[in-house]
Deep mutational scan, measured.
Amino acid sequence: MASQGTKRSYEQMETDGERQNATEIRASVGKMIDGIGRFYIQMCTELKLSDYEGRLIQNSLTIERMVLSAFDERRNKYLEEHPSAGKDPKKTGGPIYKRVDRKWMRELVLYDKEEIRRIWRQANNGDDATAGLTHMMIWHSNLNDTTYQRTRALVRTGMDPRMCSLMQGSTLPRRSGAAGAAVKGVGTMVMELIRMIKRGINDRNFWRGENGRKTRSAYERMCNILKGKFQTAAQRAMMDQVRESRNPGNAEIEDLIFLARSALILRGSVAHKSCLPACVYGPAVASGYDFEKEGYSLVGIDPFKLLQNSQVYSLIRPNENPAHKSQLVWMACNSAAFEDLRVLSFIRGTKVSPRGKLSTRGVQIASNENMDAMESSTLELRSRYWAIRTRSGGNTNQQRASAGQISVQPAFSVQRNLPFDKPTIMAAFTGNTEGRTSDMRAEIIRMMEGAKPEEMSFQGRGVFELSDERAANPIVPSFDMSNEGSYFFGDNAEEYDN
């Protein structure tokens, strides 16, 4: 993207840094990872977990959730003011799984939030270390993106479920800051804005008074975040219109849905970061690795190297396929839920299948599930090659597409044709070009129609051997075009429920 120079890199967003050079960025990201790792080690000690239990991804998720809940100030305040039966607002906890007599047992633990905050700050040299908290939120978000298709949420806001490739980060909490905003897809931002506008339509006082002023500035800020994701002048001009509207209503909703559809071809720039579970960072720190000293990046080879040398386990339900569970977590670790499966298959070195073909449910185990038949197995999170994460949407291309997802959002900077089903997408653009945004709409449609099938995206960008740390010898991959490109292809993934 041309304006790259004016933006802070995501590592800076990730670490609240002012302008830093590459070495400083690597050190501050490393410091953040160190903090998460030290916190995780301490929690495993508190909970008396064995090494194996500490490497269980379900335990990692519970521990991450506990610290996120302990620092969720708004919710904590709300819980104190609106006490609900049987919930102690000062405590947080969740299921911890232990191996007892050759069987997995679930144990519900409860801790004072104050105590968890103390352990977290102690692991982070006394700081609140917001960057580390956001990092864990993005890992949870990436896992949700890989596990669930947001059909219901899309339909509720009037969008087409086939636009799911635009929904990265749709389950990120509001408090995820600049680093969170960077990884949100165009569809996620559109959905947040539509929800806001709908509230304004239904509630006369939404934009009024002292609160209304705050609401208005939040609305304009979200519009600017979305505008910054678009790469064409016409899309940005249309966002200006939406932002400046005196009284946002149905016309703005129409414009936003139009823009979301246009992003299936004229893709937005959305950041991709490899955020790993805390149970990967903990053992690495415990083994003596100093992330701050060595430096770390979320968008280069580092996460690949770390996963190459990590042992992570997962509980497996009786009829689940461990290899499929591994694929789910591998995609989440690489922030690749909406990437082209052919690119992923090449990088991973084994075939990556669409969601609907995987015999696996989510990673988390519900409290009512029976533990008797639970097994555990090693997650295979290694890769054959590594590639640089991208934040450009890439230019655009036609490809055989599917009944489910009709476009992709690249996660890796790797040369390819970008699949999208042009006739299906263009069919949504018939007729409606009147109104105050008509010239911009016409211009956007013209650009979409001009998108050429034979153009290559990320020209000359390749993948790298894991021994090639400096990215000196790019390998331009070859793809098996007979395979499906979309992950949520004609899909039956479970729906995400809060």
Rank of each mutant, 00 (worst) to 15 (best):
K422G: 08
N125D: 13
M426S: 14
I116A: 01
Q327E: 07
P89K: 03
I347M: 01
R236Q: 04
F479A: 15
A85G: 01
G295R: 04
L276F: 12
G300E: 12
S3T: 05
V414H: 06
N59I: 12
K184T: 03
S69V: 06
M440N: 01
G54P: 07
T130E: 07
R221W: 12
R55Y: 13
S84F: 01
A278N: 12
G54I: 13
T232K: 01
I33R: 07
L256N: 10
V476Q: 04
M43E: 09
L466M: 01
R26H: 05
E454R: 04
D101Y: 04
M239Y: 02
S28H: 00
C275P: 10
F458M: 10
E369Y: 05
R162N: 13
L56V: 13
G490V: 09
K103V: 15
L172M: 15
N124C: 04
A332F: 04
C44Y: 04
G460T: 09
R461P: 15
M43C: 03
T62E: 06
A284Y: 13
M13F: 10
I406W: 12
E375F: 07
A153H: 13
M440W: 07
R221G: 14
G187I: 14
P322S: 08
R174K: 13
E244W: 10
R416Q: 13
A403Y: 06
E465L: 10
E210N: 04
I347N: 13
M163K: 05
S383D: 07
E320I: 08
T151Q: 06
I347W: 00
D88T: 05
A411Q: 07
R216I: 13
A131E: 06
A234G: 15
L358H: 14
D16Q: 01
S383M: 10
Q308C: 01
V463I: 06
A427Q: 04
A179Q: 10
V242D: 13
L266N: 10
Y219D: 15
G460S: 03
A234R: 01
M447C: 09
A179R: 10
S345F: 10
P283D: 01
K325Q: 07
M136C: 03
R416K: 14
F489G: 10
R461G: 09
L172F: 01
L143W: 09
R261Q: 13
A403E: 03
R55I: 07
M159Q: 12
L358E: 08
K77E: 05
I365T: 04
A182Q: 01
L307R: 13
P322Y: 01
D255R: 09
G485N: 15
C44K: 00
E14A: 06
Y385V: 03
E210L: 08
V67K: 10
H272G: 11
F479N: 08
G185E: 12
G54R: 15
N211W: 06
I116K: 13
P354H: 05
R355H: 10
V312H: 14
P173D: 02
E244D: 04
T157C: 13
N417K: 12
M196F: 13
L256I: 03
F488L: 06
S245R: 06
G35F: 07
N59C: 09
S165C: 04
G187T: 08
P318Q: 06
R213E: 07
S482H: 01
M167R: 13
A373Q: 04
L266I: 02
E495C: 10
R384W: 14
P89G: 00
Q20R: 12
E11G: 03
S335M: 13
Y148S: 01
L306Q: 08
A278M: 05
G17P: 00
M481F: 14
P419S: 12
G462D: 10
N321M: 11
M481L: 03
T134D: 07
S69C: 04
S217M: 08
P161I: 00
I253P: 10
E252C: 08
A129L: 00
Y296M: 12
E80A: 01
I425S: 06
K103W: 14
A237W: 14
